[in-house]
Design a protein around this nucleic acid. Sequence first.
DNA 1: TTGACATCCTGAGGCACCCTCAGTTTGACT
DNA 2: AGTCAAACTGAGGGTGCCTCAGGATGTCAA
Lengths: 198, 198
Amino acid sequence: MTTGMPHIAQRPRRADGRRNYDAILAAARKAFEADGSEASLESIAAQAGVAIGTLYRHFPARASLVEAATRDGLADLVAHAERLASSSDPLRALSEWMEQAVRHFSTFRGLVGILAQSMYDEGTPSHAMCSAMHRSGADLLHAAQTAGLIRADLTPGELFDLLSGAAWVREQSLPDRDGSPRLLRLILEGITTRAQEP
Amino acid sequence: MTTGMPHIAQRPRRADGRRNYDAILAAARKAFEADGSEASLESIAAQAGVAIGTLYRHFPARASLVEAATRDGLADLVAHAERLASSSDPLRALSEWMEQAVRHFSTFRGLVGILAQSMYDEGTPSHAMCSAMHRSGADLLHAAQTAGLIRADLTPGELFDLLSGAAWVREQSLPDRDGSPRLLRLILEGITTRAQEP
DNA sequence: TTGACATCCTGAGGCACCCTCAGTTTGACT
DNA sequence: AGTCAAACTGAGGGTGCCTCAGGATGTCAA
């Protein structure tokens, strides 16, 4: 997964192909939700009522199945960022987006790890989406920095490291004991500009 | 791994037993270093010149092998914390300890995840060591808070979340592109008391 | 030294999962 | 109805996990 074109699965043309593609995707979403990104591909195929070879036909690597299963959600995140970019309150915009980003990054166990890899490895299915997120996030950060609300020496890469770390912590903790809102608040307050405080 | 006594592997009594125990541990350290905590146990056994059953005799679960492989390092960390506890510069002490903690947490890929689990799951081999770390880290934090140098509303649990997140990021990034020193600095500056700044 | 025996070791074997590929079926289009 | 690319199937070879019945051996006391 380091060389060659990134594989973005496209919907097949034949009717049975599309049917199976959709069934596999639905089963995968359910399985990832329950068992994390390491869920058994064979049981996903079985759940979709399809032979294992069919799954591999549509999604030649686990990462491409994960990409397809998360594409829409991450696209929403990017769209939301672009909507927020014109906000008159850049700090609030950034804060809101960070919250949503962490939520999306930890949709299921193991996802952040895959996304973190994809961020810098171009030969990866999710790389395109990650780049888009990076761009839109960087814009929000830059706006807040220009307004003097966020420390100017914080790079987009560092912001993503902080968000990934928070998402990973959220992923680890049990759903009922989710400390990520508090963690995110700490991070946000930690990177706001000092002069803003009384 | 949720019920029953935590299994702390103890050195076996017979000479051949001790020999094999040590050989397995050495092989495991090397394998974890190279392949992360998910390294193949069968190849570890082979590397140690021992049958797979022997490995399982000494380390009935992967987690107990990880525990044994990291025990000394984490014990050092706790000892260092206790030495730092009497420092006249609590902020520097905390900072130094945090740096070392992140380094130890990310000794090899997958370790932070295991430690994060062990922190709150008592039926886990590493739980005892994690508790000790928690205590000694909390002391350093408390000292810095009493001196008014760290925000008073930060709990030890939150500090560990931040450290775990940073360690995870470090674990993900390639050795040459390690951004964790910078990340740690951001975190530290983020939790210092606001009035301290000019 | 020599039993006696608890400790320790072995590795085959059942299970789960990964991924491939040769052979077969079928939808789509003429 | 005929053609054929697209899609499907599932056996099979590979890796890894973990167990357990049977065999080997170090230890210690007599």
